[in-house]
């Protein structure tokens, strides 16, 4: 402010200023040491400080403190909510894992069951086949036995006939019973 006065109207302002300075504090050059203005500065400073103090202590500081508290509360709440959600997520994961394990167990059970069923069917089929095979084998054996018996009978008959013919040819007496028993005796052995 003072400098503007100076730059603007140099001569007059300077002279006036110098006069005031000289009158006030003997032109020391430092307005800070001009004690005539101290009362004015101190008065306005005290007014300013009281005004600032009242504004700060009544309005600004409680409001800012409330804002900071509110924010702290919000953050705490959000953290708690996040913790909750995290717990829920863990729970969901556990449930998922359990469901997965259950499903796996179920699948294994079904597979085992199916395998058992198939095994049972296969066993049954094998048993049936075995039965059939053994039945067929028995039949075959019977047929073979029959055939063998038939063959033996035929051998006996052929042998008796041959023996009879030989006996007859050799001039012996054709005794059917003796030939039969002799043939039987020879074929037995």
């Amino acid at each position: 402010m003072a400098s503007t006065t100076h730059d603007a109207g140099h001569g007059a302002a300077d002279a006036a200023h110098g006069a005031v300075d000289a009158a006030a504090h003997g032109s020391s050059g430092m307005p800070q040491l001009d004690f005539s203005t101290y009362g004015n500065q101190i008065f306005w400073l005290l007014v300013t400080l009281v005004v600032i103090y009242l504004i700060l202590s009544r309005v600004a500081l409680p409001r800012i403190a409330a804002i900071l508290n509110e924010r702290q509360g919000t953050i705490t709440n959000d953290l708690a909510a996040a913790e909750d959600l995290k717990a829920k997520a863990v729970e969901a994961e556990n449930a998922y894992n359990k469901a997965l394990a259950d499903a796996r167990a179920e699948a294994q059970r079904i597979a085992a069951e199916t395998r058992a069923e198939i095994q049972a069917e296969v066993d049954e089929a094998i048993a049936k086949a075995d039965e059939e095979i053994s039945a067929k084998a028995a039949d075959s054996e019977k047929a073979i036995a029959e055939i063998r018996a038939g063959a033996l009978e035929s051998v006996k008959i052929v042998a008796s006939d041959t023996a009879s013919a030989l006996v007859a040819a050799l001039g012996g007496k054709d005794d059917a019973d003796a030939v039969a028993s002799a043939v039987a005796k020879r074929t037995e052995g």
């Binding site: 003072a2 400098s3 203005t37």
Partner: peptide, 14 residues
């Protein structure tokens, strides 16, 4: 007159 520097004038109470 051309080179007047008054560094303390800015502190004047008016």
């Amino acid at each position: 007159a051309g080179l007047a520097i008054h560094p303390m004038d800015q502190f004047g109470v008016e």
